[in-house]
Write a protein that binds this DNA or RNA. Structure first.
Lengths: 219, 219
DNA sequence: GGCCCTATTTATAACCA
DNA sequence: TTGGTTATAAATAGGGC
């Protein structure tokens, strides 16, 4: 009698969904969600954006404002193609870049060795004194109270770690901007949706008004 | 008491936000949201995805699983752009080795971060346990005051970890040379945390699987 | 710009038609 | 698969620090 007609939305672990059919459903819904968010960001803030997703079946979904290719161009070769002269500079930078990368690689490899050794030493020390700390003991040896404490403590730590991870990830999204100060944002309005697959339009975003930009399903 | 402390979220029209500062705030928040959604989609469904956003100030933000460039390449192969296709592919090929170097560097740097964090965590644990022996006693034998101290101590530990993470991140920024390529490490590996206590595994694992995120600048 | 809070709006997981 | 419904989880606008 008190039975609810629905469990409503439930929390799910942030890890790969095991059940295939569930995964497919979630993929479809969340894909739509992400595309919508991307579109809204573009609309609200008037910024250019590109989003490419390969489905579990390896289908490609994409959205771009003003279109995917222009964004890719800007991302890969960050310059509005003015002259061939620029290309030379680009190449020079590329060479310098390679040298730079090689140096970094070498340095980092060395550092990695050092850190590894460091970690090993600490691990040994820790192992030696591990028995004296209940919270490091195997779980099945802990009492109820201890487990509760541990749970609370770890949840706190988890929160902090999550937040920090988020911050770091968000910050690292940023890539270096071109030193050139051009601002010509081309507002090419929507081209007809992908002609390769006419069905893509209604499939990908049946309920959404892509008044601009470009959304298509490929293959 | 009837005073509302906040208006709460208000609905806003889906059109370009007129006020510049408001737009900037919204851009930051929603950008984070979109990137999170993209990351979650990738994690939950194990699919590949790339997201590129140019800010109002024309800065580029990107995220890709496993990395932006591989997605772009895959996309371009299936979706040959109108005409500069050949040129693009050639360009992509020419960039192949630098990308490879970049990736290698990134991988190694990620490994480095893992090892470093591993070491940091172990060090902190050691330090803490040496200074505060009492907290090694079973929790149910601790008094309120001691429990409070334990809480404070754990918060301190968290802070230290945060600070260290920041320091490491800053370090990875500072080695870059202007106008040259760079690698931003954004990997927050959970492994070291796991190893602190195997029991904590399910609790501590970040809700994101940051393990695959990859961000790099080409050129 | 960043972090926190609150009140709302959105997005969605689980169901089911 | 594709779409609705429902109840709950998340995202976020507005405002303070």
């Amino acid at each position: 009698m008190e039975k609810k007609s629905s469990m409503g939305r439930q929390k799910i672990p942030m890890s790969k969904i095991p059940k295939k059919n569930r995964l497919q459903v979630t993929f479809s819904k969340r894909r739509a969600g992400v595309f919508k968010k991307a579109s809204e960001l573009s609309t609200l803030c008037g910024v250019d954006i590109a989003l490419i997703v390969f489905s579990p079946a390896n289908k490609a979904f994409s959205f771009g404002h003003p279109n995917v290719d222009s964004i890719i161009d800007r991302f890969l070769v960050r310059n509005p193609p003015p002259e061939p002269c620029t290309h030379r500079l680009v190449e020079a930078h590329r060479n310098a870049n390679i040298r730079e990368l090689n140096m970094k690689l070498t340095q980092v490899l060395q550092q990695l060795e050092i850190e590894k050794k460091h970690g090993e030493v600490l691990s040994e020390i820790r192992k030696a004194s591990r028995a004296q700390r209940w919270w490091e003991a195997p779980v099945n040896e802990l009492g109820l109270h201890e487990l509760q404490q541990l749970k609370v403590a770890m949840e706190e730590l988890k929160k902090t770690v999550e937040k920090q991870a988020n911050k770091i990830l968000m910050g690292s999204f940023e890539t270096q901007s071109p030193s050139l100060g051009e601002n010509n944002i081309n507002r090419l309005e929507s081209k007809p949706v992908d002609e390769v697959n006419p069905a893509a339009n209604s499939n990908v975003l049946p309920f959404y008004n892509w008044g601009y930009g470009h959304c298509q399903e490929l293959l």
